[in-house]
């Protein structure tokens, strides 16, 4: 699942249309829109709101790993209004803490340093984009997945010649809508990374063993690893029927180990 955190509804609206996201019943403090592969939350402004929204989204499917994207608008001294950026460094202005989202793909847009401030800024720092959410988002979302899958995507809404006072809901929607192709490209790259990570973290099925015998948690881990080793060395899944004669979990683990110990190990 892709989790997207925006601050404002006007930032979210182009995505809601583009990805055909359906609004969920607002039982709590956040508005969430989703389809089968994506969940979008409107956090409100500020890093605390962004952090809370991340935690809220993760709470909807707490055992799963998700792709995380913070999408919104940002100011920059010189980049043109409407230009898309990915954050290569996120700085929290209040604490001077920095995060470095690893970009393991060729970005479809410029990458810049992004500083998250607590109050709206009217001044501009050279070559640095400015927002109010990314640091809260990143600090929280990076707790829930490997940071290669946590990214910050912004569209420049204002600069020195077109200051923040000129930003409106309408222009925000429009500049984000115009960069949806880049967002699509980023999402596709992140999905590929997610698939690789999922492959790496895929556990062999041990349900049949668990139905037949009682395994402690530690024993379940041992069983998982033995199943993996069996699969690697034989190319087949471990079949619980081979061990029906065993009386308990300890005996099952011992029997599997014995079988594995005589399997050939070849690299050719």
């Amino acid at each position: 699942m892709i989790h997207i955190v925006t601050a404002l509804f006007c930032e979210a609206k182009p995505l809601i249309h583009h990805y055909r996201l359906n609004g969920q019943q607002a039982e709590n403090g956040f508005r969430v829109y989703e389809n089968d592969t994506m969940r979008l939350i409107i956090a409100g402004m500020g890093k605390c709101a962004a952090a809370a929204a991340c935690a809220y989204l993760q709470g909807l499917a707490p055992k799963k790993k998700h792709i995380w994207l913070n999408l919104g608008i940002a100011g920059h001294d010189s980049l043109r209004v409407g230009e898309a950026i990915l954050a290569q460094k996120v700085i929290d202005a209040a604490t001077n803490t920095a995060w470095y989202p690893p970009l393991l793909f060729t970005p479809p847009c410029r990458t810049v340093t992004l500083i998250s401030v607590d109050q709206p800024e009217t001044g501009y720092v050279t070559d640095v984009a400015c927002d109010m959410e990314a640091s809260g988002f990143y600090a929280t979302a990076a707790r829930f997945n490997s940071c290669e899958l946590v990214q910050v995507f912004k569209v420049i809404s204002d600069n020195r010649v077109s200051p923040v006072q000129q930003v409106s809901e309408k222009t925000t929607q429009e500049i984000i809508r115009q960069q949806l192709d880049k967002l699509d490209a980023i999402i596709q790259q992140l999905r590929e990374l997610e698939a690789r990570l999922a492959e790496q973290q895929r556990k062999p099925a041990i349900d049949f063993f668990l139905q037949r015998w009682h395994f402690t948690v530690a024993q379940q881990h041992m069983l998982q690893r033995l199943s993996q080793r069996w699969q690697v060395l034989t190319g087949t899944a471990l079949d619980s029927n081979q061990f029906v004669a065993e009386k308990n979990s300890k005996a099952v683990l011992g029997a599997i180990e014995n079988k594995i110990s005589v399997l050939p190990v070849r690299f050719d």
Binding site: Y100, S146, C147, E148, R196, L197
Partner: peptide, 13 residues
């Protein structure tokens, strides 16, 4: 700051 954070995946990187 770049090298040590916990939530990184060596294999992906």
């Amino acid at each position: 700051e770049v090298f040590n954070p916990k939530a990184q995946n060596f294999r992906l990187q």
